[in-house]
């Protein structure tokens, strides 16, 4: 049962998370310390990866940049899980009219590609990281609510749930005790597969100037900052891109492995959609 590759991937992810948390211990610089006398410094013992166009230490900004990416995808996931649990359980348990209305709304939302929908929600809410987080969470909500609903429909017919219903357990308690663990274990794995995708969305929106704004240390912003100097200093743009690539690749691989291992059906949302 021991999956060495999976353990290795989790260790890699752990390293990234720990370096994000303990960023101030890893590097002596601040990501915002501007030193115009030391612009575009090359790799040296004092600046491991050199400095950028404002003389800021690139390695420091990369380490701090991981905070932004990780916190935003974590926040997106928490919002999605909480809201989809509420919406999916309401639709699945209540059925009838409520179910119909919720599912038709989700039909409309699912016709739009996530990126266009995210652009629209940012148009409604305004520019900024928090709005980007809400926008991306909303765009994925319909899909996750569907999955939760199908899990609820399946679980609510199980004998132990029926038994607990007979004993007069309130619906809310059934949701928390019986539905939630099912949802978290199944949806959690599918969510790992989506984390990478969402991280790419966050970076892409930051690149368009709709998300995180300069001078915040964020990988998408760093690529944007480095763009004007691409001819002379391509490495400034390559480092943050590699960071995004590696992190997304780790999330994707973990998701794939977990999905294969626990045989999770990916297209659950479609099966009982009609």
């Amino acid at each position: 049962m021991k999956d060495k590759k999976l353990i290795f991937l989790f260790i890699m992810l752990g390293v990234i998370i720990l370096s994000a948390i303990f960023a101030p211990l890893i590097t002596p610089y601040s990501p915002y310390d501007i030193d115009l006398s030391n612009r575009f410094a090359s790799i040296s013992s004092s600046h491991i990866l050199g400095t950028d166009h404002l003389g800021r230490d690139v390695f420091t900004r990369l380490i701090y940049g991981s905070r932004m990416s990780l916190i935003s995808v974590l926040a997106i996931m928490v919002i999605i899980l909480v809201l989809s649990l509420i919406i999916g359980s309401a639709a699945g348990f209540q059925g009838g009219k409520l179910d119909n209305v919720l599912m038709r709304i989700s039909d409309v939302m699912l016709t739009f590609p996530t990126f266009i929908l995210a652009l629209f929600f940012i148009g409604v809410l305004g520019v900024g990281l928090i709005n980007v987080i809400i926008a991306i969470a909303f765009t994925h909500l319909a899909w996750y609510s569907r999955i939760v609903r199908s899990i609820v429909l399946e679980t609510k017919e199980k004998n132990y749930v029926l038994a607990s219903k007979c004993m007069g357990t309130p619906k809310l308690k059934i949701v928390i005790k019986h539905i939630m663990p099912q949802v978290l274990s199944q949806v959690g794995i599918l969510a790992t597969l989506d984390l990478g995708h969402m991280m790419l969305h966050v970076a892409g929106l930051s690149f368009l100037g709709l998300g995180v704004q300069a001078p915040v240390a964020e990988w998408g912003v760093m690529i944007n900052d480095a763009a004007p100097f691409i001819r002379q200093h391509p490495e400034l743009m390559i480092y943050p891109g590699l960071c995004i690539f590696i992190t997304v690749a780790i999330f994707n691989s973990i998701g794939e492995r977990l999905k294969d291992r626990y045989k999770i059906k990916e297209d659950r949302s479609k099966e009982s959609a009609v």
């Binding site: 998408g220 743009m237 891109g241 997304v248």
Partner: peptide, 17 residues
């Protein structure tokens, strides 16, 4: 595998370079 993990705008910059 590489394709699904690469930020497209970064890939664009690499191609430009």
């Amino acid at each position: 595998f590489i394709g699904v993990s690469t930020p497209s705008f970064w890939f664009g910059f690499l191609l430009i370079y």
